[in-house]
Structures are given as C-alpha cells and as structure tokens.
Simulated assay, not measured.
Amino acid sequence: MLPLYRRIGMNPMVMATLAMLSLSIISGMTPWGGPATRAISVLGLDPSDFFVPLLPTMIGGIACVIFLAFLMGRKERNRIGIVKLEPRHITKDSSQSYMAATLDSEQLKRPRLIYLNLFLVISVMVLIVLGTKHPSVLFLIGFVLALTINYPNVKMQKERIAEHSGNAITVVLLVFSAGVFAGILSGTKMVDAIAGSLVSIIPSSMGQLFPGIVALTSIPFTFVLSNDAYYFGMVPIFAEAASAYGIEPVEIARASIMGQPVHLMSPLVASTLLLVSMLKIDLGSFQRFAVKWAVITSLVITLLAIITGAITIL
C-alpha cells in the first residue's frame, strides 16, 4: 500500500496508525496472539473461556478501527482533493523482476482448493467457539488436514513445516517461560504478599470495579512495560488481588489486554520499530499522531467489553 499512498500524496502516518490499531485488535484478543497467550498461560486459563466472550468486543473493535479509517480518509481527502493517477509504464526488466519474485509464492497457491480451505478454517473456528474440544487439539487436526489436502507431497510438507516452525517454537518457549515465572512468583509467595498490599490500598466499596481499574491502568502500564514484564509480573498480582473480591482470573486476563492499542505505540515493540523504519517516519512524530486514536480505541473496546459482559464492574 505504501507506493499507492506516496503516489496519492497521503500522510504515511495514517497507514501506520491504522496498521497498528488493526494489529492491536486481532493480535491482542485472539488466544494465539502474544498478549492473550501470555495472560492465558500465566493464569492457567482455558483459551475458549477467555476468547469466546471477547468475540463481540473484537467485532466492535474492528468496526471502530474501520470508522477511524473513514475519519482519517475523509480528512486526507479534504487536504489533498481528487488526484488523477496516470498509468505507469512497466519495463521489461521490472516485469521480469516481478515474475521472479512471485514465482515461489505462486507455486504454493491452491486456487482450486480455496473453498475447501475456507470451509476448513471456518469449521475449526466454529468448533473452538462451541468448545467441543480443547483448541490445541482442534488446531492440530485442522493443521494436519490442511497440510495433507494442500500439499500431499511429503517433501513440500516438510518445507512448509520448516517455514513456519520458527514462530511455533517461539510460542511454545513463551508458554514454558510463563509457567516457570508464574511458579517462582507463586512458590515464593511474592504474589500473595504484593496482592495483599494492593487489596489493602483499594477500598472494599471499589472492589467490584477492579476489572475496570485493570482495563484502564493497562493503557499506561502496557506502554511503559514490555508484554513479558506486564503479563508475567503484574497480571498474576492483579488476579490474586481480584480473588479477594470474588472476581475470576479470566476477567482480569480479558481486562489486561484492553490497553494493547496504546501498547503498540511503545518503543519496546519490535513490530512498531519495523513499521516506522519501513515507512521512513520518526517514532516520536508517529506517537504524537497516533496517541489520540489509540486511546480512543482502547476506551471503546473497554466499554464494549463491559457492555457485553466480557468484564464486569458491578
């Protein structure tokens, strides 16, 4: 999209902001995304219990980002006006370079199986939402079926597994790390001590507001802290403190991800640094441009989570 933005003359900050907000909704709330994976692992939750009540919030968050894209687009339209794009001449060299770059990806595509693959994906997602089996079992079955159907050749199967194994290993190591860290905090009673101090600070009359407090404080906390520090260090403390008010840990886990739109502006996030470097924009300028949109998105999804019952404050 960047060449199109440049030809039209649009502000690349708009694309950076929308990319960041879109990623924060999808990656932040799905149980296979980084923040949710950490919260689920460190609190020992069932992914379906965490994710299914968040579906309305996720859909509302996507709608919010689309609406913000409309507002930004209309503002850019008023600034730029109507731009007529002239077709560019494609040289033989550029055409050959494009063909060479896309040859490998074309060989992996299976256009004849698009509807079968779509049916497989939808079926797995529906079964996860219905809670028929543990999500990991359903994902494994779906993966085996997809791999066998699309790439019946064993050599290609090995290549596809090798291509994506790095990401899978990272998630596995993350889950094991969460277990070790949570075990240290629990075994040494550090969580109990810190949670007790936190409970003593919060008035008992405000105890039922604790999920909402966690959701709102996640906005600044996740900005200044890495995901590992926040979810492995602070979320277990919040969950332990919330238990004193009869609040389930899963609600604290859901509340803790409401600040992800703001978190992704942080210089601690590698994907954000990659984004601004690819667009050749200054990180500070990007943060100043995006902060109001990120805060609005966080507040909107927090409100939606309260309205839909994903987190309760009464």
Rank of each mutant, 00 (worst) to 15 (best):
L54G: 01
L54T: 04
L55H: 02
L55W: 00
L55K: 01
P56E: 04
P56I: 02
P56A: 02
T57Y: 02
M58N: 02
M58A: 09
M58P: 00
I59P: 01
G60C: 08
G60H: 09
G60R: 03
I62C: 09
I62Q: 04
I62L: 10
I62T: 08
A63M: 14
A63F: 08
A63T: 08
A63E: 07
C64Y: 07
V65H: 02
I66P: 00
I66V: 12
I66H: 04
F67L: 12
F67Q: 02
F67D: 03
L68S: 04
L68T: 10
A69G: 14
A69L: 02
A69E: 05
F70T: 13
F70K: 12
L71A: 10
L71H: 08
L71I: 14
L71W: 12
L71S: 13
M72K: 13
G73F: 14
R74N: 15
R74D: 15
R74Y: 15
R74T: 15
K75Y: 13
K75W: 11
K75N: 15
E76V: 12
E76N: 12
R77D: 10
R77I: 02
R77V: 06
R77E: 11
R77L: 13
N78D: 14
R79V: 06
I80W: 01
I80D: 04
G81N: 05
G81T: 05
I82N: 11
I82S: 05
I82V: 13
I82C: 03
V83C: 08
V83F: 09
K84T: 06
K84I: 12
K84G: 01
K84P: 01
K84C: 03
L85A: 06
L85S: 06
E86V: 11
E86F: 05
E86Q: 09
E86Y: 10
P87R: 06
P87G: 04
P87E: 05
R88T: 10
R88H: 06
R88P: 07
H89Y: 15
H89M: 15
H89C: 13
H89I: 14
T91S: 15
T91K: 12
T91L: 12
K92S: 13
K92D: 12
K92E: 13
K92Q: 10
K92W: 13
K92I: 12
D93H: 12
D93Y: 09
D93M: 10
D93G: 04
S94G: 04
S94M: 14
S94D: 10
S95D: 08
S95T: 03
Q96A: 10
S97M: 13
S97P: 00
Y98I: 05
Y98N: 09
M99F: 08
M99Y: 05
M99R: 09
A100S: 11
A100P: 00
A100C: 03
A101G: 11
A101E: 09
T102L: 01
T102S: 10
T102H: 05
T102M: 03
L103G: 00
D104C: 00
D104W: 07
D104G: 03
D104E: 14
D104P: 00
S105W: 02
S105Y: 04
E106T: 07
Q107N: 08
Q107Y: 01
Q107D: 02
L108R: 12
L108C: 02
L108F: 09
L108E: 08
L108D: 11
R110F: 07
R110T: 13
